[in-house]
Amino acid sequence: MKRSTFHRLVMAFFGLYALAVTWPVVTLFKDPLPLIFGFPLPLAWSIAWILLGFVVLVILNWFEERR
């Protein structure tokens, strides 16, 4: 993959992240039930995005340092 395409994908991911945790998208995940691994849905949603963000940053850095 070309470097610029890859960078655009990463930026698109963080744009998506911003949309996912703010109004109006986050309203789909506002109710506390169901519990996910014991956590209320909105909390699990926030945590899932942190983990996703971590994975994307690790891939980005792996890609950059390999260069």
């Binding site: 963080f14 945790v21 945590i47 942190i50 963000g53």
Partner: peptide, 16 residues
């Protein structure tokens, strides 16, 4: 309560 989850949501976005 859930208002606190905003603190979880901005960190990675702000740092990236």
């Amino acid at each position: 309560g859930a208002a606190a989850f905003y603190i979880l949501s901005y960190g990675v976005l702000g740092m990236a």
